[in-house]
């Protein structure tokens, strides 16, 4: 499973390299809006061609008819309750009809959101700013081995290592010195474990974590290849600062994307003749 996700991430990274490249130059609100619009339309089209449009239309019409019947024939409670029951049955059928497109869309949507998270979930460190780097070690190791963090050209280790044996982790404070995408190396004996370290202004892809060999972790952190299953280091992550903004800020980009993509899909639905 993890191998499959790694492979999917490779494809997604390659596609996003070009497709999302303009995000680096555009204002956050504009790029978030554009991505939401495009994905809204694309998902609508995928929905159109992966769902049973005829059945959806029939079921929707049935639900609407029964809802109208509730107001038209409200005199009789048994008639009204029958209509209510039919609305419920219709709603359940509609739910089932959405399962296939939902399954089809889940994978591309997860990949897309993970790629978007690279841009919007955190911002790169500015020069002279500090961040905490944490290395997680395998739970089965009795004690944390000797570990050394080698500073990259763009950064310098300021504090650390701070060992937390109970949690199998070691922390450092890293100081950003120069703009660019750098690599930090963790040395344990003869082995070296690397982690991407991004410094700069504006928008850039920021990999919060180099993931463990776990499909879910890999899915959420697509930028860097995961550590192997038998690696002593399970994951390395950097506590990048949050990005601010109502459209592309750390706490909001996902909601903004949900809302805008849904509104766009709803608005363009008549043009694409999609029953949803």
């Amino acid at each position: 499973m993890t191998e499959l996700v790694v492979w999917l991430n490779t494809v997604a990274n390659a596609c996003a390299e070009y497709a999302l490249a303009p995000l680096a130059f555009l204002p956050g609100w504009l790029s978030a809006t554009l991505v939401a619009i495009v994905t809204g339309i694309l998902m609508l089209l995928i929905f159109k061609y992966t769902s049973n449009q005829v059945s959806i239309k029939q079921v929707r019409n049935g639900i609407r008819a029964n809802l109208l019947a509730l107001s038209l024939f409200q005199d009789n409670i048994s008639v009204s309750l029958r209509c209510q029951a039919r609305v419920l049955v219709g709603a359940c059928r509609l739910f089932l009809l959405a399962v296939v497109p939902m399954l089809v869309m889940t994978v591309p949507m997860c990949l897309l959101l993970a790629q978007m998270a690279l841009w919007y979930q955190a911002r790169p460190l500015h020069v002279d700013e500090e961040a905490v780097l944490t290395a997680f070690f395998a739970d089965n190791s009795n004690e944390i081995p000797e570990v050394q963090l080698e500073a990259a050209s763009g950064g310098e280790v300021k504090i650390g290592p701070v060992r937390v044996p109970s949690k199998h982790m070691v922390c450092w404070s890293v100081w950003a010195q120069e703009d660019g995408c750098h690599r930090l190396s963790l040395r344990i004996g003869k082995q070296t474990f690397e982690k991407e370290f991004t410094v700069g202004e504006g928008f850039a892809r920021v990999s919060l974590r180099r993931p463990a060999w776990n499909w879910f972790d890999v899915l959420l952190h697509p930028r860097e290849t995961p550590f192997s299953q038998d690696s002593i280091v399970r994951a390395i992550e950097i506590d990048y600062p949050s990005r601010h903004g109502w459209a592309s800020g750390s706490g909001f980009w996902l909601i903004y994307w949900f809302v805008v993509s849904m509104v766009v899909a709803f608005c363009v639905r008549p043009w694409f003749n999609v029953n949803i």
């Binding site: 994905t39 809204g40 998902m43 609508l44 995928i46 929905f47 159109k48 769902s51 959806i56 929707r60 639900i63 809802l67 209510q84 609305v87 419920l88 219709g90 709603a91 359940c92 509609l94 739910f95 009809l97 959405a98 497109p101 939902m102 869309m105 889940t106 949507m109 959101l113 949900f258 993509s261 849904m262 766009v264 899909a265 709803f266 999609v274 949803i276």
Partner: peptide, 23 residues
């Protein structure tokens, strides 16, 4: 539910609304 896309999101949203509404 829109996590799985606006189309299916709407469909699911609609069906849930209908269920809640009917109840």
């Amino acid at each position: 539910w829109a996590y799985i896309g606006p189309g299916a999101g709407f469909a699911l949203a609609g069906s849930f609304l209908a269920i809640f509404g009917a109840l």
